[in-house]
Simulated scan of single mutants.
Amino acid sequence: MELYRELSEVPADFGPSVVTIGNFDGVHTGHAEVLGTVVRLARENKLVSAAISFDPHPSQVHRPESAHIEIMGQQDRQRFFRELGLDCYLLIHYTLEFSRQSPEEFVRSVLVETLNARYVVIGDDVRFGHKNSGDLSTMQQLGEKYGFTVVAIADLMADETHRTSSTRIRELLEAGNVEEAGRLLGRPHLMTGEIIHGEARGRELGFPTANMAFDSSGYVPADGVYAGWLIDENGTRHPVATSVGTNPTFEGVNRRTVEAHVIGRPEEPVENFNLYGQKVSLEFTHHLRPMVAYTGVEALIEQMNQDVDDAKRLLGLDSE
């Protein structure tokens, strides 16, 4: 997959193409349907498949004081685009100046003149152009004017009352419901980042943890304990029980951390299992319990043993 970060980077002879537009935060099942349609149409018509997105997210430019936290970082997003078979990803640097383009200016300069679009695949709730003044009807009118066909994809419904959306997935993660969030994503929710040294409190308790760096990408779910998998730089998947929160049993801890205890991790020699400095992915598959304070370390250790047993059962490891 080719990645372009400026319109000027796109070759003059690019296309003709099938194009879609969106933020694609999380690359959830609704996004996968749109992107899958783009890839299918491109292959059927011997065209180039392309997606357009924006960095930073438009909300971070227009409403920086209240901009949402993204579900997934750009590198993970691009990885899933490749897996879906996309040929090209145009990641446009989003600015206030760029946002002032009218719907027609955007379509003409980006879709027509740069990407030579023959098909434009969009959700039926699409908004684009200055102050989101363009919609599906606008795109269809511009398609007739500039010679491309618009293919509208209806929303996927998550349930009877909610459509599948990045907003809904963030709500579920905020509630700790990683199981339902994973269903809408089509895979477990994940974070990606470097493993750093922590305060070694888990090691002292007999549960050493791999601590995610504070600048890791991906939405941090609600405080609590989760079962899941840690994927290291070699692609090896390790079962984990992950703690998210501020360690309320210990005084003076007020910064949220994400700490994964690798189940079955060898204690010695440490050089045989050293994740420090590695960039890993951490998947959240099951919510085990909320984060609570325990009266004493012994009660905490007993609960942590139970957490590991519960994680092993949910991950299908209890018979090993």
Rank of each mutant, 00 (worst) to 15 (best):
A154G: 07
D155V: 12
D155I: 15
L156V: 11
L156P: 07
L156W: 13
M157N: 08
A158Y: 09
D159G: 07
E160C: 14
E160Q: 12
T161R: 12
H162I: 15
H162P: 08
H162G: 13
H162A: 11
H162C: 13
H162V: 08
R163S: 14
R163L: 07
R163D: 15
T164V: 08
T164S: 09
T164A: 10
T164Y: 06
T164M: 10
S165L: 05
S165H: 06
S165K: 07
S165A: 14
S165Q: 05
S166Q: 04
S166P: 04
S166M: 04
S166W: 05
T167Q: 15
T167L: 11
R168S: 10
R168K: 11
R168P: 06
R168Q: 14
I169P: 00
I169L: 03
R170S: 01
R170H: 02
R170F: 01
R170K: 13
E171A: 03
L172I: 05
L173Y: 00
E174P: 00
E174R: 00
A175N: 03
A175W: 00
G176K: 00
G176A: 03
G176I: 00
G176Y: 00
G176D: 01
N177I: 05
N177K: 05
N177M: 05
V178C: 05
E179I: 06
E179G: 09
E180D: 14
E180C: 09
E180L: 13
A181E: 00
A181Y: 00
G182L: 07
G182S: 10
G182V: 11
G182C: 07
G182I: 15
R183D: 14
R183M: 13
R183Q: 15
R183N: 15
L184E: 02
L184H: 04
L184R: 03
L184Y: 04
L185P: 01
L185K: 01
G186Q: 08
G186I: 03
R187E: 05
R187Y: 11
R187F: 10
R187V: 04
P188L: 07
P188E: 04
P188A: 08
H189K: 08
H189N: 06
L190Q: 09
L190E: 06
L190M: 15
L190D: 13
M191I: 06
M191L: 08
M191A: 08
T192A: 07
T192I: 15
T192F: 12
G193F: 02
G193Q: 03
G193P: 02
G193R: 00
G193K: 01
E194Y: 14
E194G: 08
I195S: 03
I195P: 03
I196M: 13
H197E: 13
H197P: 06
G198V: 03
E199W: 14
E199A: 12
A200T: 10
R201Q: 09
R201I: 14
G202A: 08
G202H: 11
R203S: 09
R203H: 13
R203Y: 07
R203W: 14
R203L: 09
E204P: 10
E204M: 12
